[in-house]
Design a protein around this nucleic acid. Structure first.
Length: 204
DNA sequence: GTTCCGATTTTCT
DNA sequence: GAAAATCGGAACA
């Protein structure tokens, strides 16, 4: 993909096998990857800068902790699929399903650094401050026009309108590992990861 | 800067 | 009926 003369991400999405591993490993390694949204002829893209791992039966903070429901069933399905849920009566949140088929787990995408289609994202969010466009799980879904319709979408399928790609020119960064945000149980588990020093991280 | 509160779906008690 | 993987605005300091 070209922006001016700068190539930002590889043509093919990350293979589905990338997600069929330990959730915490996937969470850590997906930092720096590019989230890509195709809307008609246009493209929105940004760098994933903050994530959290949510496991299943062994993680009290996970939606899958008490088993399968209508809402969380894609968490039990194929790795690499999007789990999008509606919460607090207002917001959507984007997760990527991990682990083998049948094992409930996912990585919550908490923040993205907008890089392509920035003006469209700012319009979607009704804000003009770039640091407020996608610096939170509810914010980034609105910026990227992600809704319930994207639930179950395969992020490793090149024909999907929502995909994840390796950056063309990876940049070195340090990863900070800490506790998760916005939960009341299992607050001690250090399953939140973000890129050190990145200004788009939701909270530091 | 901080804290409090309303928005109002989905799930669980 | 209450809490939740959140956000933005109002009130206060």
């Amino acid at each position: 993909m070209l922006v001016g003369s700068v190539v930002l991400f590889k043509k093919w999405p990350i293979d589905g096998g990338f997600y069929a591993r330990s959730t915490v490993t996937v969470a850590r390694e997906i930092l720096g990857m590019m989230l890509v949204r195709r809307i008609g002829e246009g493209v929105l893209a940004g760098r994933i800068v903050e994530v959290e791992a949510y496991r299943g039966a062994d993680d009290p903070a996970s939606h899958a902790y008490r088993g399968r429901t209508m809402r969380n069933e894609v968490m039990f399905g194929a790795p690499g699929c999007a789990y999008v849920y509606f919460t607090y009566g207002n917001h959507y949140c984007l997760n990527i399903v991990t682990e083998e088929m049948g094992v409930a787990a996912a990585v919550l995408i908490r923040a993205v650094e907008p890089l392509i289609g920035v003006e469209v994202m700012m319009r979607n969010r009704s804000v003009s401050d770039l640091l407020n466009v996608a610096s939170g799980p509810g914010k980034l879904t609105k910026a990227f026009q992600i809704t319930r319709e994207d639930n179950g979408c395969d992020l490793a399928d090149p024909s999907s309108s929502l995909t994840v790609h390796e950056p063309s020119n990876p940049v070195e960064f340090q990863v900070v590992q800490t506790t998760r945000v916005g939960i009341r149980v299992a607050r001690d588990l250090p399953w939140r990861f973000y890129i050190q020093g990145n200004l788009h991280v939701s909270r530091r």
